[in-house]
Every structure is written in structure tokens, then in C-alpha cells.
Design a protein around this nucleic acid. Sequence first.
DNA 1: TACAAGGTGAGATTGAGTCTCATTACTGTT
DNA 2: AACAGTAATGAGACTCAATCTCACCTTGTA
Lengths: 144, 144
Amino acid sequence: MAQTEWSEHVHAVLSQAGLKRGASRERVIELLATKPCALSAVEIEDELRASGRPTGRASVYRVLDLLVEHGLAERLEVGDGQARFERSHPDGEHHHHLVCDRCGRLVAFDDPGLEQAIDRLSDRLGVRIDSHDVLLRGACQRCG
Amino acid sequence: MAQTEWSEHVHAVLSQAGLKRGASRERVIELLATKPCALSAVEIEDELRASGRPTGRASVYRVLDLLVEHGLAERLEVGDGQARFERSHPDGEHHHHLVCDRCGRLVAFDDPGLEQAIDRLSDRLGVRIDSHDVLLRGACQRCG
DNA sequence: TACAAGGTGAGATTGAGTCTCATTACTGTT
DNA sequence: AACAGTAATGAGACTCAATCTCACCTTGTA
């Protein structure tokens, strides 16, 4: 899904939910649209300020929470004490991450076998699984 | 592995590493030994104080970091802004968690299929995977 | 017992994230 | 276009897990 498609989808969902538009929200959405992978709230705030579109901290967090609530973004934590956010695709397509111990880089990957294993798990455990996160720690190809 | 075995193993590893014993360390280790699953640093500090063995916050965090460094404990985050810790087994046996959206309960599970899928992944991606976390979110059996 | 290296903890500090509330902006209606 | 009602915004105070500092205490060894 292209960046533009994603932000259009976001606007559609939010207006469907009866929400008004607002400048801060637009800014955060536009920024996320251009970033395929994991950005922290602080990074978002800094990038917006750096690009001449300063946005209140409260608004940044509000928008991110809103997006996550509506399934439009994913929240993930890699263990450095801050949450990261990335846009998520409405068709359920998603990826997971490897954190490199050496260089700290975040590498995205997806794997049907893994998704399958998790689907099976839901039945076996007798629980409803709404979402899942897989985080690998190790050495990335560059450092490995 | 029984509680006692685990704490003996911990002491063996740490003394092997040339570390001295210390009262705070003993207290944290003994407490973790009795808890099979995910305890936060704050909970550890509180439980120790409540049981008449008050221990400095700095020491609690130091001990936990030490255990994680030596592979004697696992750190996990379930998205509530605080890290949780649990003892880990030297044979590599481990479990993962489901966080119930409704009641907040943490349910442990293990699954060979999942582990297998992750093993395969390592080859396919061409990276070295040292450890992994899987976190499911959904409804536990009780709330489901 | 002496001594060096490690261990400990009170309290200050950091920093991500939350909360408040007065102000401003959006949108549908007359 | 003016209005009304409701949603959005942001400065800054606040919370709280986690980190840092540093003077003091313990342990293990010779």
C-alpha cells in the first residue's frame, strides 16, 4: 500500500468515526505516511519541529493513540524504554522486527510460517488472539 | 527446574564470573526463585520491603541487569511502560505470554511449532538470532 | 587482620508519557 | 455569513520507572 493510499485510508476511517480534522493530526499522519518503519513519539515530535511544523507533545501522543485504537498504526517496544509506532495496513499484512545487539538497527521481516504457527496457537490455547508481536534479538546481516 | 536448583545455578554462574556475594543480590535471587512468572522491578522492591527485607532500588535494578546479562533471567515488556523479569532456565526451555486486554492478566504458554518457525527464520534471513520474544494480545480463557 | 575489589542504598536526576484546561478550529445548520 | 456545538490543540505541570552518584559497607583472599 502506497503512502498516499494509507493516509487516505486513515482519513476515511477517522471521518467515518465522526472525527473532525485538525492541523496536528494531519501533520502526524503525513509524517507517518512517509516512514515505513518504527518511529518513536519523541522522534516524531522532533522531526515535526525540525521541519518547521512544531506540534504539541500531547497532540502527538493523542494522534498516535487514536491511530492505534482504530487499527491504523501499530505500537511496538524494542526494550529501550520507549514505544515506537508505524503505520499498519488494513489488509492485515504486517511485519516483525529484529533488533541488532551490535548496531541497534531495527530490521523488518515477515514470515508466513511464523504467522501460521501463531494462528494454530490460538486454537490450541483456546483463546482469542487479536494481535501479536514477535521481536528477535541478535546480529543483523551487516554485523553478523 | 526447581526453585532451589535455579538459585544454585545462579550462584554457581556468578561465582564462576568472579563476583562476590551480597545481601541484596541474595534477596532478589531468592524472591525470583519463588516466582515462576514476570515480576516488575517495582513489585520486587515492594515485596522485599513488605517481607521485612528492604532493598535499595539501585540494587534491585543492578541485580536484575546482572541476571539478564548472564542469561539467568529474561526481561520482557508487555506494553504498560515497565519491564518485567522472570528467571530463565539454562537448558533454553522458555515460554511466552498472552496479555489479556480485558483483565490484564498475563498467561504463559509454550509452543514447539512457534519455536520451530523461529529457528527456520534464522536461516532464511541469514542472521544470528540470540533470543526472541513473542507477545500475544487478546482475551484469556476466563474473559474470552 | 588487612586490604583491595565488589556490593549497597539514599536521594537526586532523567526522560517518556500523561493530564489539565483555557483557547482555537472545524463542520453542519440557519 | 454568523452561530452553536463539539472536537482538537498545546503549554506546562505532573507522574513514575529507571538511572546515576558517591560515600559507605562486605566479602574473599593472602
